[in-house]
């Protein structure tokens, strides 16, 4: 391992970190704008042009607020909760292929922090740790509402992780790899997985909503019932961390949706661009294409938030356990039959 390699990776990691933070920041702005537009309002428009400095103002405000802590025996856990939520939200971005590779300074630079061959499993692992942040925060708050919110979040995330994992299995049977990089490469041209696995996509999408605690599944923090759910007792930047982690999660899950199902950085005509205009340019456009896709998903998240009302808790569990899981198992079986159709036909002697 030479020093240039370390520098290269550090730069990529820093850029990915910065971009994730920036996207999370501006998601808050976008959320307000989209919400306003969907409700025939104009949204924040005072801080900077079109309210573009609004996230900065919000951040400043949160930092300047008094850090209030409830009278809880778990001061340490109370402090550590938002940190866990934030850290896990940021860790998932490590395995996402943001583009193919750039050829700079005589080196091939992989536009990915690390290409581990169990990328998807890594993401699932980290995302399930994310629930600890919420659980610990809610528990340490010493407040009924927080606790109920945290428990709801935990059980919801655990249930939907099952359906999410199963929906991905059908996809993995097709791709035959767990590396997000290879999955992206396989979708070159217009071979996007969403055309082959629409049901898997649908289940994954619904589960992604549940995993990120967004409406219609935002039971963990439903204002009407639980005040603010697990972050009721939080104030100042600790609460900012929770909210920020949520937006970072939304950004990451949009990216994963784009990478797994919508071809990642691939776009129609990529090989033509690579031949005529050079590989670097083709890949830079590829990064742009990925961002267009994931911004589309972020918009979709917000769009749904202002369309569908919240589920009831039993409806949520019913949907997760009794509809999505059987559906994904059926999907796995159908995929298996289609993949093995040659052997099956041979076995039946057709």
């Amino acid at each position: 391992m030479d020093s240039t390699f370390i520098i290269e990776k550090s730069v990529v990691i820093l850029v990915v970190f910065g971009v994730t933070m920036l996207m999370a920041m501006y998601s808050t702005w976008a959320e307000r704008k989209v919400a306003a537009y969907l409700q025939d309002r104009v949204g924040p428009n005072r801080a900077g042009w079109g309210g573009l400095f609004q996230p900065l103002a919000d951040g400043l405000k949160l930092f300047a607020k008094e850090e209030f802590a409830p009278n809880t025996p778990n001061q340490f856990l109370f402090r550590v909760g938002p940190g866990i939520a934030m850290a896990t939200a940021l860790m998932t971005s490590a395995v996402i292929p943001w583009g193919d590779r750039l050829h700079l300074f005589g080196r091939d630079i992989l536009l990915q922090a690390t290409d581990i061959n169990v990328g998807i499993l890594y993401i699932f692992g980290i995302v399930s740790v994310g629930v600890y942040g919420i659980m610990i925060g809610g528990w340490a708050s010493n407040n009924k509402f927080s606790l109920i919110g945290a428990i709801r979040a935990a059980s919801q995330m655990v249930s939907y992780e099952v359906a999410m994992g199963l929906s991905i299995v059908a996809l993995l049977m097709m791709t035959g790899t767990l590396s997000l990089k290879e999955i992206s490469e396989q979708q070159a041209g217009m071979n996007w997985n969403v055309f082959y696995q629409p049901i898997s996509f649908l289940i994954f999408l619904i589960c992604a909503f549940a995993e990120t605690n967004r409406t219609p599944f935002d039971l963990a923090e439903c204002e009407t019932e639980l005040i603010g759910g697990y972050h009721t007792e939080y104030s100042s930047m600790r609460m900012g961390f929770y909210l920020f982690a949520e937006y970072a999660n939304m950004f990451i899950s949009s990216t994963i949706l784009a990478v797994l199902f919508f071809g990642g950085y691939n776009y129609p005509g990529m090989s033509w661009v690579a031949e005529n205009w050079g590989v670097n340019l083709a890949n830079i456009i590829g990064i742009g294409a990925l961002f267009v896709k994931l911004c589309g998903f972020i918009f979709f998240y917000m769009w749904v938030r202002w369309t569908i009302p919240r589920f009831r808790y039993d409806q949520l569990m019913h949907l997760g356990w009794r509809i999505l899981i059987p559906l994904s198992i059926i999907n796995i079986m159908i995929t298996g039959v289609v993949i093995l159709r040659g052997e099956i036909f041979a076995y039946l002697g057709w």
């Binding site: 025939d40 309002r41 769009w303 369309t307």
Partner: peptide, 21 residues
């Protein structure tokens, strides 16, 4: 039904805004 709902909300996205600055 969800798709229909999404259609309704997106129509509002492009409507004239009621806000007076």
């Amino acid at each position: 039904a969800i798709l229909k709902g999404l259609g309704i909300t997106i129509k509002h996205f492009f409507r004239k805004k009621a806000t007076i600055n």
